[in-house]
Amino acid sequence: MEPRPDWAPESVDAELPSAARIYDYLLGGSHNFAADREVAHRAIAAMPDVPVQAQANRAFLRRAVQHLSGLGVRQFLDIGSGIPTLGNVHEVAQGISADARVVYVDLDPVAVAHGRAILAAEDRTAVIQEDLRHPDGILGHPDLRGVLDLGRPVAVLLMAILHVIPDVDDPCGIAARLRDPLVPGSYLAIAHGTHESRPAEVEELRRLSEKTATPMTLRSRVEIARFFAGWELVEPGLVWAPEWHPDSPEDVGAHPERSSNLVGVGCKP
């Protein structure tokens, strides 16, 4: 295929499975196309509890936003937000404090168009189409500046997105460029897939993801911890998704490591 010239905009191809729509399907949504469901079915065949893992990540997002709202955070930047579905960040945050402001960022033009349609009436939210690989483009985006005040603390949410950034794109550098401009008291929440608990099944998922627009790069606990470099991890640190501030002890279950996702929240000192 010819390389896309710089001036040509991103194309929209519903035939190409999108991580945002696959995730929506795994959470029980219907904002997806046959190509997305096809990949989701194969993922479930390789790892039957993939939907449970998606739910665990989504539940961590909800708990992290609740926790941070409880700490007084009123600004959220959700990068890789996917298809707006039940329990969106602004619903959770504004449920706690009506003045909470949220900016959603996704690369998928369909997810962005859908988000804008749903949030058209919300003036404390914005949806921008950007690539995590351009953090300056995100933080400098006029729509973001219209909603968030970067002079005050912001919670950046990177849910199941850093693991679609290959090493060649320097994810540590990207995380640093997101962290550095933020003021002290800002937070960074990360959920990241790892091969540490179920290497064979996770490798199968990774191979499947090569057919999507966003292939996965799974990382170790040590590598994931580096994304918080210099920031203080909120208790209980970098843990399996169900272990982070569970609503009740029984939510953790006997095998939290089966979630295959390590999560953590860091605070800028």
Binding site: V12, A14, R21, S30, H31, N32, F33, I83, P109, V110, A111, V112, A113, H114, A117, I118
Partner: peptide, 11 residues
């Protein structure tokens, strides 16, 4: 399905 198709069309 309707909303996602509309979003795809818009995009």
């Amino acid at each position: 399905q309707e909303s996602i198709r509309r979003a795809a069309l818009t995009a």
